[in-house]
């Protein structure tokens, strides 16, 4: 009941936007721009013949692969850079230069190296999400409060224990922030990457719908589905933030 009350204003805003959209399309009698209802029927059509699920599955698989690779590299690398000063001063400048390069700028190189198969978008997602995660992890290690390291030193624990019980858990909240940023960027990029080539994915759905007979109802359906899935992915990441071992950092 309380949740509903909180969600009510945002539902009203969305309803108003859809209402204006519908009214404008009706008033201008546009032949190409679809009404909200046309988008709904278009979506149902795709869902019924199964292509919608294929596109969603393809996009999610690419994000899963690219993001997973990025996590597997960024977390150990970020921890190492945060802990070992020499690693930080050696690698950080390179990453700081590469980080602002838009993943879109990598598309030609991705096609050159990996062709137009699945590897290209996976590579692009990897490139897009790895740097924010490295940076956040490194920052996380650098911002561990000295009093905690000192306490660990006082108890004379082994290096393994220091790492497992202090350094890693102290950094985990920042790692999760990095993962949230990384996954957000990954989802942005998969759609852009799929617009270039390939035969599946939500990005492909949008471009293909436009090219194959101006099906703008499907274009907008694709956009809305991308938005909703992005929201869901972020929701999963928020679940990580609510874990008790990291709540100390976000609380207040």
């Amino acid at each position: 009941m309380k949740g509903l009350k909180q969600a009510l204003p945002s539902i009203v805003v969305i309803a108003i936007v859809v209402g204006i959209w519908w009214a404008v399309v009706a008033a201008t009698q546009s032949a190409i721009f679809p009404t909200p209802w046309a988008v709904v029927t278009g979506t149902l059509e795709l869902a019924r013949d199964g292509t919608l699920w294929e596109h969603i599955g393809a996009s999610l698989m690419r994000v899963g692969a690219g993001f997973g690779l990025a996590v597997a590299l960024a977390i150990p690398l970020g921890l190492w850079m945060g802990w070992v000063h020499g690693a930080f001063v050696t690698l950080n400048p390179l990453f700081q230069i590469m980080r602002p390069i838009s993943p879109i700028a990598w598309i030609p190189i991705a096609i050159l190296w990996f062709g137009v198969g699945n590897a290209s978008p996976i590579f692009l997602i990897f490139i897009a999400s790895v740097f924010p995660m490295i940076v956040q992890t490194t920052v996380g290690v650098h911002t561990i409060e000295k009093r905690f390291l000192r306490a660990a030193e006082n108890f004379g624990v082994s290096r393994t224990k220091l790492f497992m019980k202090v350094v890693f858990p102290a950094t985990l909240p920042q790692i999760i922030v990095g993962m949230r940023i990384g996954l957000g960027v990954a989802w942005l990029v998969v759609v852009a990457a799929e617009m270039i080539a390939l035969r599946s994915g939500l990005g492909y759905l949008i471009i293909d719908s436009r090219n194959a007979g101006n099906r703008y109802d499907l274009v907008i359906a694709g956009m809305i589905i991308i938005g909703l899935i992005g929201l869901m992915l972020d929701g999963f990441m928020r679940l990580l933030e609510s874990m008790k071992v990291v709540r100390w950092r976000y609380a207040h």
């Binding site: 306490a151 006082n154 004379g156 102290a170 100390w248």
Partner: peptide, 27 residues
Amino acid sequence: PNRKGIMITQQGSVFPWLTVKQNLMFG
């Protein structure tokens, strides 16, 4: 420093990511 002499400060240094029991077992 070593564990024969333990420091307790104003700020405190109980690890917020461990439970009370895990903190006690830490050392």
